[in-house]
């Protein structure tokens, strides 16, 4: 069972100055657009994985190591961030 992107607000706040959960992401797999808050999220261990609710493709991944955070966004074709 999945959480959703709301739970990424804290982990993403380590990386971004704005709240990315309110951003709209476009899935690189199927093109569907969703608020990051609405992505299906699995985690936190070994890392966070957010999937598209439309096609289940991985949209973003966050893995935290001892000295760095990996942010993998290759499944997101675009992020529209409200200002």
């Amino acid at each position: 069972m999945a959480l959703d992107g709301n739970t990424l607000a804290g982990p993403l706040s380590e990386l971004f100055a704005v709240d990315v959960t309110a951003a709209v992401s476009r899935c690189a797999g199927c093109g569907q657009q969703d608020a990051v808050a609405d992505l299906l999220v699995y985690g936190p261990d070994p890392g966070w994985v957010a999937r598209c609710p439309g096609c289940d493709s991985v949209v973003l991944r966050i893995v935290r190591g001892p000295s760095a955070v990996w942010l993998d966004l290759h499944g997101s074709a675009a992020l529209r961030i409200p200002l």
């Binding site: 069972m1 999945a2 959480l3 959703d4 709301n6 739970t7 808050a37 609405d38 699995y42 985690g43 936190p44």
Partner: peptide, 10 residues
């Protein structure tokens, strides 16, 4: 319609 889901992993 704004949503927030939780599951056992939370």
């Amino acid at each position: 319609v704004k949503t927030e889901r939780f599951g056992p992993s939370g």
